[in-house]
Design a protein around this nucleic acid. Structure first.
Lengths: 254, 254
DNA sequence: CGAAGGCTTGATTCAGATCAATTCTTGTGG
DNA sequence: CCACAAGAATTGATCTGAATCAAGCCTTCG
């Protein structure tokens, strides 16, 4: 059941929610690699591995993760359908953390695309730009992750992460209205949020009671998206690139 | 009093602890830009700003930071002497968070170096490699930051961050034996560690009592570096690149 | 149908936050 | 060189958000 979108719509290639033109998609279509499936909760790459074979996620969710010696687990970031596992524009790239599947996963090898983006960016400008943009987004989400777990309350963290998921899935066409499929266990959320699974559960209960969200069978509905975003200070990465329209948000003191 | 090292030793350029050859340093030496000083706790760049003018830190410490609407502050990463503020290899780079000084700061404009690294990497291979390496280190430290604040105890967090500072300063020649100058307030540490300033203070007291560290006048001495690293799971980024020597550390379960 | 994994809930504990003084430093101006 | 003011560091007392422990209850799915 690959309910989570294909990353190519009618011949248009999409990476991390960024569409290539039909023309460039056509050029690249025959460069796509083999498809693999992976079961949930398996290690895909280990710290220190070479990242020369990035894989595009066609369905399912994955993450980067680090373990402490006593078994504590920290999820560093999540990868959703359309994201690329192990994308690096470095000529000699190394995994800075482990990569693991969180659900059943279907991936496609895109090592060739990586090579093209690196060696002939001029021939594939959109591909190269999409790769760079994906890296920027990845860093943006890392920074969001730090702010969430460093300075936000449990209910803010959960709200913020749900908004991030919604935003990212929307870009890939995987949200329906205000709803999306969330295939993660509460434990997988907890390990990303720096909380215990029990407390994630209670926090969901709180958000439901306050009518911020509805959750039924793995489907999350954000009922008050504006209010939710306001409450937890959520911002889209796109906001950063439209500096001309919005006047500069004069930030808090010093 | 710029007690914190110059980033150039006898004509050798050093970026983030990575030395260029004498030859390439000589080629680049005349491309260095103007020097500026900045007072402590001022905003250097805001979210969304163009990053076309990176600045090398010659002395002092800085950080990237994000504020919540009620004034809570999260420090995302720290920049030490020899680091570059706003380094990006993207053609059209944007600040993903604010940049601020934490101490008095002396910086040097290195926009020209950025341009050379981008446009003529073949002529300046070491410069280009150093820039890439710095970006990798930066991401490595972001991941460490996430693990610290997401899943470690206060005393582990503090120990881990001190080890990181020691490691980074050592590479630039700014550590003396087991000691280094730590010019940050406990509040600046707290905002990076996701703790309150009071608790940082108490945690220092604990680490002192256990004879892990000594602190006097802004000088930190790591008394039991091995034990400390073991206790908090600290690892050097270099470990990742020497996969051949060390057999693969089979990590915790799945 | 049964087993296993995930979810939910209650009871209890605890790490770290918050509040409130007091000292200690450090930089400044006279 | 000294006095002081402002900012840091330190300490105590108290509170609280989230962890932990421990059942029970749902869903899946073979």
């Amino acid at each position: 059941m690959d309910r989570y979108a294909p990353a190519a719509f009618g011949g248009i290639l999409t990476f991390g929610g960024i569409n290539l033109s039909r023309a460039e998609s056509a050029l690249l279509a025959r460069q796509l690699g083999a498809i693999q499936t992976h079961r949930p909760n398996v290690r895909l790459l280990s710290e220190g591995d070479m990242l020369d074979r990035p894989r595009l996620i066609r369905s399912g969710w994955a993450c980067r993760v680090r373990f402490l010696s006593d078994g504590r687990r920290q999820i560093l970031n999540y990868y959703l359908p359309g994201d690329i596992l192990g994308l690096s524009l470095d000529p000699d790239p190394v995994a800075l953390a482990g990569y693991a599947s969180l659900t059943r996963l279907m991936t496609m090898e895109v090592g060739t695309l990586r090579t093209l983006a690196l060696d002939r960016p001029d021939e594939y400008p959109e591909l190269a730009a999409a790769c760079r943009r994906m890296k920027v987004h990845e860093e943006f989400y890392l920074l969001a992750q730090i702010t969430r777990i460093g300075r936000q309350k449990a209910y803010e963290r959960v709200a913020h992460l749900l908004l991030e998921f919604y935003s990212r899935l929307s870009r890939t066409g995987l949200a329906e209205g205000a709803s999306f499929q969330l295939p993660l266990t509460q434990e997988a959320l907890a390990d990303g949020l720096g909380l215990s699974a029990v407390h994630v559960n209670r926090t969901f209960k709180l958000l439901k009671r306050k009518n911020y969200v509805r959750v039924e069978r793995g489907t999350v509905t954000l009922l008050e998206r504006e209010a939710l975003a306001e409450m937890c200070g959520f911002r889209e990465p796109e906001d950063l690139f439209q500096v001309d329209t919005v006047p500069h948000k004069t930030a808090v003191s010093f």
